[in-house]
Structures are given as structure tokens and as C-alpha cells.
């Protein structure tokens, strides 16, 4: 009996936290989204969202988030696989994670220098004979920097999944004559799919609402839903429209969470 009351006592901070910092803000966003520019109740914001300009913006946000996630995954999986085979794997993993401790803004400014006309990237391109290119303020640089920023978050869950993989399965597959490709396709990948899903979630969802990089690295030529929210709140001061975009962003995130949700049916050591 006492055990139960103490347990209930422990849930109090959690409940307070969720109520004040998760549920209350979402309700506020929902409330503001039904206010038009004069503060009256209306559905105009929702109607505005379904105009070509915002739909196009939503599509382009999804497209860039998809590209970023896909490229990050293509690089992260082999890297994570390689890491599990190394001798001091925790140390190598740490080295990959360390850059993510540096502030995002600082990294973005660093790329302004690296990708500049007289920057390191162009000096390198010149030396190998390709000649200097305009790198800054292009789609390429935007996707490149975003992938660079998100890749540690993609590597970590995949690394964990691969690391937990029981090596006897691989031996068994080998003994039964499976080729390496078949082993990967039928054993390794299905068993690490949860890690891949988790990595994709952590990458795709923030990538949808990136806004600082769109200005610093893409020169405001890439417009995402995050940029639109920032502009509605800070410039237009139309909090209603900003909230409406945020509501849709929340809905999209829930859909993605459900679509890639990890079902805990297999209990694994």
C-alpha cells in the first residue's frame, strides 16, 4: 500500500512537467490558431494554409527533410556498422558525437567561411583541377550542412541496434550457406530496423522545421515551415497564422511518429 503511494508521489513532478510544458503550450498554440489578425475567433488561418503558397512550402519542407534523412541514413548505416567492428568503438563513437556539443549557430558561421568563394572548399576544388564553384547559398550546401548536423543523431540509434545484435545469428547464417548480402538483407537489417526508424524520426522531424540554416546557409532561398512560423511571429506579428502552421507541423509529426512507431513486441536482451 505504502509502496503505491510513494510511487504516486514520484509521478507528481512528471505530471506537472507534462501539464505545464507540453500540454498547456500545445493548447495555447491551438487556441491562437483560431484567432485572426484582429484577435477574433475565425477559421481564416486554416483556409489560408490551404492556399498554393503554404502547400508549396509544406511540400518543399518535406522534400528537403526527406533528402536530408535519406542521405544521412546512407552515410550513417555503414559508419555505424564499421564502428561496431572497431577495437575502441566507444571512443570512436564519442569522437563522432563531440561536434554535436558545439552550438549550431557557430557551426553554421564556420560553414560560411568554409564554403565562401575564397574558402577552404573552393581552394581544394581549385587544387584538384575542378575550379572554384559557388557553394554558398545553394541547395547543395543547405542539404550538406543539415546532413552534417543531423548525422550523429542518426548514427547513435543504429550503432546501438547493431551493437546489441547477437553475433551467433551471423554465424548460423554463414553455416547455413547464406551469402553476405542475404545475411544482411534477411538478418542484420530486419533486426536493426528499430534503430533505423528511431534515427529517421530524430532526423526527419527537426529537419522539417529547420529555420536558422535556411537563412545562413541557403540564403533564404529555401523556405521551410519553420521559417514561415518565425516570420509570422516576429515580423508580421500574426500569431494566429504562425500557430496554425505550428498546428499542422505538430499533426505531421504525430503522423510520422505513428508511421515509424517502434512496436515493442520482441523482448530483446
Amino acid at each position: 500500500m505504502e509502496n503505491k503511494t510513494t510511487r504516486n508521489l514520484y509521478t507528481i513532478p512528471y505530471v506537472i512537467w507534462i501539464a505545464f510544458f507540453v500540454i498547456a503550450p500545445i493548447l495555447l498554440v491551438l487556441y491562437y490558431s483560431f484567432q485572426d489578425i484582429n484577435g477574433d475567433f475565425s477559421l481564416t488561418n486554416y483556409r489560408n494554409f490551404f492556399t498554393p503558397i503554404y502547400l508549396e512550402m509544406t511540400l518543399s519542407s518535406f522534400w528537403y527533410a526527406f533528402l536530408i534523412t535519406l542521405i544521412a541514413l546512407l552515410f550513417a548505416y555503414p559508419t555505424a556498422y564499421l564502428l561496431t567492428k572497431l577495437k575502441h568503438k566507444q571512443l570512436w563513437l564519442l569522437l563522432i558525437i563531440v561536434p554535436s556539443w558545439i552550438n549550431l549557430l557557430l557551426k553554421a558561421y564556420a560553414f560560411l567561411g568554409i564554403f565562401g568563394t575564397y574558402g577552404m572548399a573552393n581552394t581544394f576544388l581549385e587544387t584538384i583541377g575542378i575550379g572554384s564553384k559557388q557553394l554558398l547559398f545553394t541547395d547543395f550546401s543547405f542539404v550538406f550542412v543539415s546532413v552534417y548536423i543531423f548525422i550523429p543523431f542518426m548514427i547513435l540509434p543504429i550503432f546501438n541496434a547493431l551493437d546489441k545484435l547477437n553475433p551467433t545469428y551471423l554465424d548460423a547464417a554463414n553455416d547455413l550457406g547464406a551469402s553476405r548480402w542475404t545475411t544482411f538483407r534477411r538478418i542484420v537489417f530486419p533486426l536493426t530496423i528499430d534503430g533505423v526508424k528511431a534515427g529517421c524520426q530524430i532526423t526527419f522531424i527537426p529537419a522539417l522545421s529547420l529555420f536558422m540554416l535556411t537563412r545562413l546557409i541557403a540564403g533564404s532561398q529555401v523556405i521551410t515551415l519553420g521559417t514561415a512560423i518565425e516570420q509570422q511571429f516576429l515580423v508580421t506579428q500574426n500569431w494566429g497564422m504562425g500557430s496554425t502552421i505550428a498546428v499542422f507541423l505538430i499533426i505531421f509529426m504525430f503522423i510520422i511518429m505513428f508511421a515509424t512507431g517502434t512496436k515493442r513486441r520482441r523482448a530483446r536482451g
Binding site: I53, M57, Q221, Q231, Q232, T236, N238
Partner: peptide, 17 residues
């Protein structure tokens, strides 16, 4: 006024896209 400012912003956003 808010409404005209919103119109300015809408056009500007379209221009950026």
C-alpha cells in the same frame, strides 16, 4: 496596419520561394 503588413509579408514570402 496589420492587414497590409500581412499582405506585404505574403508577397515577400512568395518572392523568396
Amino acid at each position: 496596419g496589420q492587414e497590409n503588413l500581412a499582405h506585404y509579408n505574403e508577397l515577400f514570402l512568395k518572392f523568396k520561394m
